[in-house]
Nucleic acid binder design. Structure first.
Lengths: 245, 245
DNA sequence: CCAAAAGTGTTTCTTATACACCCATGT
DNA sequence: ACATGGGTGTATAAGAAACACTTTTGG
């Protein structure tokens, strides 16, 4: 039994990759390029999110995971379905129409948008068939369809979730320093944090576990390495009902 | 130009209504009833959310608003699109198959789920053609499709949002007492709150405005009435970046 | 010895929490 | 007069915020 694609339903994936070196939150985008038949004009030349239509016998989550796997080769990443985008005119910019015509997509396609969290370094971007490329979330190129809006809303959601859940560690290597965590928060939230207060707060968490290891190969005082224990976190986590209005 | 329905795309609305008298958060559900041809057997007898397919030229938000308007006659309510449900088997319980056969729906329908907030008393439920009825969110009847799951996730989302934004006032009348707000929080979150601390906290907010009015027609000391000013709230609101992990 | 980032303590202030009785009103 | 829910104050604890210098290391 061969499975068919659902012609008007897709998933789109906002792939967030944090670059611990440049301290930059990046988005993985795919080049979209089309020339006129005589090759005299460039009709489409911009970027889009990775995404694809959903199969008839596939859950939305599986579709998103499949798309991500195809692009990055990675599994089991943190993912969140954050919004459905389905405006009738979401694909109907002139440029997008040209593109869709060349691809035989349905004009009224609803897309279920996900975001994924990973480390920029975990994706091989150099020899990539899809011409995938990282862009800082604050400095995106020209984007097709409604993907600028989708990224914006993904980022908003991510920022809120960052404050409430320890998903920052999905963006960092298994072993990290306290300052690296601080840098990640600062970069993603666009804020400054006092180092002494932040250190104290983090080190006091039972699920931030100091390792018997320090940084190596740095030309300065090597920092203490820590890991995050999801097990401990889950065990001691308790919902607080603080009403912050 | 006549608009067609999209056969595999629907919106479903979790209509939350707060009953200030019984202090109960309710969900508005619609009776689903089907007899066999000889009328000897009841084939389907349960409840479902209100929802309907989306028109080709309609946004998802408009579709949800249309569905809600048809059921309740109400406009401009607080609404949130909180999740898309699209499992291949989400409509394929035996009971649901019987129902869908009788309704000619598409078996692989993706639904975009919304929730709406209002006051139970604002909906006339008595002479309703859809056989709509309120049920406490904690005491739901048997539900068709995956609607139990949809309601559960809507409620989870609502609880989180309640803590971060002043949406509680969408569930309360324009003029309310402090204790009514407290009751609403307690009922929705399932917690106990200290009355003195809660009063102080709320009364100190600039956007909780005391009126020159007290309760009337109560057989006890009439309570001071307040209103919520969204304008003031929006003006003085500032994002706090407290990392609570 | 120098550059660079790591690491460290104390004080103040705000906010949450815990807790029990009197008051005003309608009947 | 009484029953009912409305309304009030204080003390403690916890956590957030502000703030500047010393230490350790590799080069």
């Amino acid at each position: 039994m061969k499975s068919e694609l659902i012609s008007n339903l897709s998933v789109d994936c906002v792939v967030f990759g944090y670059d611990i070196i440049t301290k930059s939150l990046n988005v993985l985008l795919i080049k979209r390029y089309l020339e006129s038949e005589d090759k005299k004009d460039v009709l489409v030349n911009d970027y889009v999110l990775t995404g694809y239509h959903v199969f008839e016998d596939e859950t939305l989550d599986k579709a998103a995971e499949r798309v991500l796997k195809e692009l990055t080769g990675l599994n089991n990443l943190y993912k969140k379905q954050f919004k459905a985008f389905g405006d009738p005119d979401r694909l109907t910019n002139p440029k997008d129409l040209i593109w869709i015509e060349s691809q035989k997509f349905n004009l009224r396609t609803i897309t279920i948008a996900y975001y994924f969290l990973l480390k920029t370094e975990d994706v091989e971007v150099t020899d990539n068939v899809s011409k995938a490329k990282w862009f800082p979330v604050g400095d995106l190129p020209e984007l097709g369809f409604d993907h600028k809006q989708i990224i914006k809303e993904a980022y908003e959601d991510l920022k809120i979730k960052c404050l409430a859940e320890p998903i920052i560690f999905e963006l960092l290597p298994d072993k990290f320093t306290i300052n690296e965590v601080q840098d990640a928060y600062q970069s993603i939230l666009g804020i400054e944090i006092d180092n002494r207060n932040f250190r104290r707060k983090l080190i006091n968490k039972k699920y931030i576990i100091p390792l018997d290891e320090k940084q190596v190969g740095v030309s300065k005082k090597p920092a203490q390495l820590y890991m995050f224990s999801k097990d401990v976190y889950d065990k001691i986590f308790q919902k607080n009902y603080l009403i912050s209005i």
